[in-house]
Simulated scan of single mutants.
Amino acid sequence: MSRLLLAGWALAAVLVAGWLAVVEVFWLPLRVGGVPVPVSVLAAVVGNVLLVRAALRVSGSRLVAAVPALVWLVVVVAAMGRRPEGDLVITIGTGGYTVVTTAFLLLGVLAAAFSVGTAMGGGPRPVSSPRAPTGSGSGGA
């Protein structure tokens, strides 16, 4: 695959992963009738798994496959920091919001790490049966 095409897939992975991460962060405080709705948690897990797999499939590059997970992490960490105006996007509040935010951070990172590990070839391997010894066993030639 040409370097230009690979760079294009990497750019596409950055844009899609960045957009999805921003949307997930802003879905964190979503409530229906005062009850927190963990849409962002589901989106983080599914998005991190599917984007890494899709990036690997379309680009064929393990490096490009890791890009969506890294972008997600950068966006989320940036959202946890205080802006110059004093605003915080991701806060650990009280009640259900704390549970949703913690689940979002924990499960999102775990899904990203699992997906990247699988893409890098660290996925589950089939168990092979032990090999029978070859030769006569006498030690001679």
Rank of each mutant, 00 (worst) to 15 (best):
P126M: 07
G108H: 06
V67A: 02
N48T: 11
G47D: 08
G121T: 12
Y97W: 13
G93K: 10
P29S: 11
V32S: 12
W72N: 06
V41A: 02
P84T: 07
A113K: 05
V64D: 02
W72L: 07
L51E: 04
V116K: 01
A78N: 03
V32T: 13
A103L: 14
Y97H: 13
G86T: 14
D87E: 15
G123P: 10
V109K: 00
F104I: 04
A111L: 10
W72D: 00
G47V: 05
A103M: 12
V49I: 15
A44E: 01
L42P: 02
G123L: 12
V35R: 15
A69L: 07
M120V: 05
V76H: 08
V64F: 10
L110N: 09
G86C: 13
V116H: 03
G96H: 09
A112V: 07
R83G: 01
G60T: 09
G122C: 02
L110A: 15
P68V: 09
G117P: 03
V99S: 09
A103Y: 02
A112T: 04
V89D: 10
A113R: 08
L42R: 00
A55T: 10
R82Y: 01
L73F: 13
L110V: 15
T118M: 06
A111D: 06
V58M: 08
W72I: 00
I90D: 00
V52A: 10
V32C: 02
L63R: 13
P36L: 06
G81S: 13
A66T: 13
L30C: 00
V35M: 13
S59P: 04
G47R: 06
A112D: 03
T94H: 11
A44M: 01
P29F: 08
V32L: 14
V35D: 08
V45D: 05
L106K: 04
L106H: 12
V49R: 02
G95S: 13
F104H: 13
S115W: 00
F114N: 01
L56I: 09
S115G: 15
V116W: 02
V100T: 13
L56T: 04
A69S: 14
A111S: 10
